[in-house]
Write a protein that binds this DNA or RNA. Structure first.
Lengths: 217, 217
DNA sequence: ATTTATTTTTAGGATTGTCTAAGTTTTATT
DNA sequence: AATAAAACTTAGACAATCCTAAAAATAAAT
């Protein structure tokens, strides 16, 4: 069993590695976890000793198979708990992250299996992120960014590319949630902003930045 | 916000104090938490500094109002999570304790409120222990120990006085669970053992020790 | 009331995970 | 290729929580 701190490092390393495909640097982790770079070096050594990451001095770390497996398990727990809170406890998707950060460190295989069952084995969490199965397999995603969508076509929101509180609250305000249907009306050449029509016929304009942070299918 | 360790001390102090009505000694806590007495002394000082307990050197601690409130809140969380696991995740009542020991340290008021709501504001947990409400009020219990029950009367099991794994597993094996009805048939003068009839007409004999660990009403 | 036994505290260390400050190494710029 | 900038590591410290061993305080037994 690993400490809460180790689990958090591992999860963060895994995510950065998946995002970039390259070794994860000391500063990148220091940034994400809001701690000093020197502390990160210490932990890199500790994780390397346990064969959870591959560490090359001054060159960052890559998760090993063992490390990736653990990270995926934490991610699975995180996303199942988020789903639970939204589906069963009527949280909105911008409220669940911080609590899930705590719940993901609860150690109990059977608890997670039963939770998964209670939720009906969901494949995506409320943010549209895929939930690894108990073997660490991710469901395949076919989503595209809204910013790459075609004019005149109907889409469904299936996830976000950015998880910041600010962005999620903004979406909430606009009434855009997981599963919302929308039609792309116009793509403004000048700044890449988009005019959309929603289910209820209301119209709204999204900036290029916002559209590039939304997944649709 | 208090550390996980402080919370565990506080909870243990509260329970021992409630059970005995007297100052809680260093060794009692050391015993319960399986740590060294010297470490307990350190923590007694730390908790006293925060006014969570009243500490008299070489004479043990008593919880203050502030400390009791926190302990009750942890107990509330523990018992709600246990109820959740039994009611919603089909755990049996002997499987839930260890996981609840972890879950009780999750910090989120709203999570617990919503959980309480999901469960229909239960007043007793699967072991029959009372669940404090959000203000720390305990429901009143009218249960008696089975060992003090009258011959010929019908009772319902509503809780246990002993929480050990061994005991709960034993009850499970006998088919005795929360809510089981039983009639006391005979009280053996010699050793205080009892002959009981269950719903399904089956008979069984319980030792005095076992009967003194079961609450009925 | 002494002596003995038990309980509690103190003193001094270990470990984990953090920090700052000062060096190294690597990368980027000229 | 030399220098400047950025990133990384080392060294030394500190807080929290635990430990062991020894001293002090309290309780029990003669």
């Amino acid at each position: 069993m690993h400490t809460l701190t180790e689990e958090n490092y591992l999860k963060t390393i895994y995510r950065l590695f998946e995002a970039t495909g390259e070794s994860v640097s000391t500063t990148a982790i220091a940034e994400k976890l809001q701690i000093n770079a020197a502390s990160v070096t210490d932990m890199f050594k500790k994780l390397a000793q346990q064969k959870l990451v591959l560490y090359e001095k001054s060159r960052g770390v890559k998760p090993t198979d063992k490390g990736r497996k653990i990270a995926l398990h934490i991610l699975r727990k995180h996303r199942l708990w988020e789903t639970f809170m939204v589906e069963k406890l009527r949280f909105s998707w911008d409220e669940v992250h911080d609590v899930a950060e705590q719940l993901e460190h609860i150690h109990s295989e059977i608890l997670i299996e039963r939770l998964d069952q209670l939720l009906g084995y969901p494949r995506f969490d409320p943010h549209g992120d895929p939930i690894p199965d108990k073997n660490g397999k991710m469901p395949i995603v076919t989503a595209i960014l809204l910013s790459e969508a075609k004019v005149g076509t109907l889409y469904k929101i299936c996830g976000v590319a950015e998880n910041s509180d600010r962005f999620l609250k903004y979406l909430n305000k606009l009434g855009l949630v997981q599963g919302s249907s929308l039609i792309v009306r116009e793509l403004e050449e000048y700044d890449g902003s988009m005019k959309l029509t929603l289910q209820d016929e209301s119209e709204l304009v999204l900036s290029k930045e916002a559209a590039a942070s939304l997944y649709v299918s």
